[in-house]
Design a binder for these strands. Structure first.
Lengths: 122, 122
DNA sequence: AAATATGATATATATAAGATATAACACATA
DNA sequence: TATGTGTTATATCTTATATATATCATATTT
């Protein structure tokens, strides 16, 4: 899976990294059991420091997207604790986006269409 | 409208401020034509520096939520440039949230329900 | 006319976050 | 034994955030 870092972005590198891996999982480019490159090798590939990658991996682990094992390295393993709990998290993340949508006169039907389209072609 | 700052939050104060004002507009606690407190008075009320408020106001202006006038101060005025353009922005902001939802096994129907609920009781 | 309040701008400083550079550790594997 | 994991620690540099003052042009109020 291709990962690209924009060094001019205001977004922190470890966040860019985390986001691209989450999107990779959503696109099924990354599946449960797949291994990610080691912290050091990915850092080397991207031209980035080891700790930056480590920070992204640690974040992904804490969010339940992968497990870190000394034997196998970083392995994708999406943990779904409880549907209601997951929906609650989504709810929180969605709040600002919906606020913006309401302000800008975008109807919930418009939002449905955007969501459907995204689920279709992610 | 009540604005509260969490000084222990990892989120920058000017972002908290910006977000709460956008939510205020979405909730119709703030409507077009309403004035916000001046930069200095809001800063004083919140126990925050003038520049921090100024940064939030400047951001809101650049995002088309208010206009800044020396006569009237900061006045809510939501500018909707073009529906497709606004949807495109929402699309961008929504992408990471939907990625997370897909990863965590949340269906688009679940998302619709969350959206509808939010539009209902914002 | 004078005083006051507005947003806007400039400069300086302090703190926190992000990123890097090395180094070492425990553990597993080849 | 040597190598490669993730993990942790320390130090340094840069950038972002927040604050403290101060000034400016302009509009309003007294």
């Amino acid at each position: 899976m291709l990962i690209e870092i924009d060094f001019n972005s205001p977004q922190a590198i470890y966040i860019q990294l985390r986001n691209q891996i989450v999107m990779g999982i959503a696109q099924e480019q990354l599946r449960d059991g797949d291994s990610l490159p080691s912290v050091r090798s990915l850092a080397s590939t991207l031209g980035v420091n080891m700790h930056t990658v480590n920070k992204a991996y640690a974040m992904l682990r804490s969010e339940g997207y992968l497990i870190l094992d000394r034997r196998k390295g970083a392995v994708i393993q999406v943990e779904i604790e409880n549907k209601d709990a997951e929906i609650e998290k989504i709810n929180h993340n969605l709040r600002m986006v919906v606020a913006q949508a309401i302000c800008k006169g975008i109807s919930k039907e418009d939002m449905h269409a955007v969501i459907d389209d995204m689920y279709e072609h992610f």
